[in-house]
Design a protein around this nucleic acid. Structure first.
Lengths: 218, 218
DNA sequence: GTCTATATGAAGATAGAC
DNA sequence: GTCTATCTTCATATAGAC
């Protein structure tokens, strides 16, 4: 018997088949269309594996016309990476502002937002996390800054919980890395058709995170 | 303060800077040299982002000479993916044969092997996991089969532990996905210079896995 | 097995008309 | 803003001599 794999086509890089970009994520008009087409292509084939010609084709225009909206292919990737990490940071910060001072509640809030974002905007997460290396340090600087802030937020929560004796881990950074990794991977297999729904997956992963930290549900 | 990030250059796709391939992993002679050069390039820039010319250059030959050893670039990737998943499966199976019948011991053995492999052969893991999508279904078939076997092995262990009341999880597949994800991510940040060493990281992650499964260390 | 030379196509990007 | 046309470089791969 084979594992009940939620990924329909194992040869795909990720399970999602549609790009999800909210209106508040993208610029209006043609720039937004280009961004959405590029997001799907970058997610499925990688930045290097997707061409300007394919993006133009998907956006219903000629390759040359793209350059009226973006100065280069790399600029399109840079905007996608920034949008992804901004959405990530925004949703985490919003959750943390509502959850109170208990480190357990903070971990639940953080991981829930982290996982839900990777499920709901899976293509954005795959590109923003997995194609960042293709950016020059100049075009990637804003994104790196956002990423460091999000990581640091979880480090601070876990460190504080350890100091208060609420959490118990052999290594704080390793625990943060493990919890982050669980959530990041969700972007590769989640689809809106998955039986449990993004919210429930996020809930369960928040529970797993508490367990990793040695603070199981009360 | 910024998190003590073990990744020296955040713009790199992975922290490792050298390809690790044991003699038993690769064919002898020129084929082995080509494979090792391609491994480093595919790991750092992705399959689509690395060219036949760069591989040839690294191997000290002209692009045309490569075709005396491999019929196409895709065949090089196929061999790397197969080697990576074979090493993964081999080390897990070896560990499981030595650990006895307790589901807890089996999880520790599995996760230790899983994590140690992703740390010690990080470039191989990054390529075998992350570039598999670039293979045609024909050239990827052998690798998919190996991967399914490795996933199924952990599914079986966890399922058996749940049935015996040793583990307690809201969803078996989600727990397996989370545990697998923690280990896979190690390949992106681990280097031989990391303070803890692959063996110790594997030990700690095995503990985290037990916690996720609701069976903390005794 | 490795080379030079080359076929053939696709890549990112630009010029300039409309 | 979009187009046609094109520049230049690079891609994978092959032919055939040594």
């Amino acid at each position: 018997m084979i594992v009940p794999n939620p990924i329909p086509d194992a040869a795909r890089r990720l399970a999602a088949t549609h790009a999800t970009l909210l209106p508040e994520h993208k610029p209006a008009g043609t720039r937004g269309v280009i961004l959405e087409v590029a997001l799907k292509l970058f997610a499925e084939h990688g930045y290097a594996g997707a061409s300007i010609r394919e993006i133009a084709d998907g956006a219903g225009m000629r390759p040359a016309s793209l350059y009226a909206h973006y100065p280069s292919k790399e600029h399109i990737l840079a905007e996608l990476c920034r949008i992804g990490h901004e959405e990530h940071r925004r949703s985490i910060q919003a959750a943390l502002l509502e959850c109170g001072a208990d480190p357990r509640d903070q971990v639940v809030a953080y991981v829930h937002a982290h996982v839900a974002m990777h499920a709901q905007f899976s293509m954005l997460a795959v590109v923003a996390n997995g194609e960042l290396h293709a950016l020059s340090s100049q075009l990637g600087a804003a994104t790196f800054e956002l990423r460091n802030q999000s990581i640091q937020a979880l480090m601070d929560i876990v460190q504080r919980g350890v100091e208060r004796g609420v959490f118990n881990v052999p290594d704080v950074w390793l625990a943060v890395a493990a919890i982050g990794a669980m959530g990041m991977r969700v972007a590769y297999w989640y689809t809106p058709e998955y039986e449990l729904g993004a919210h429930r997956v996020a809930e369960i992963y928040a529970q797993y995170a508490l367990r990793v930290l040695g603070a199981p549900e009360s």
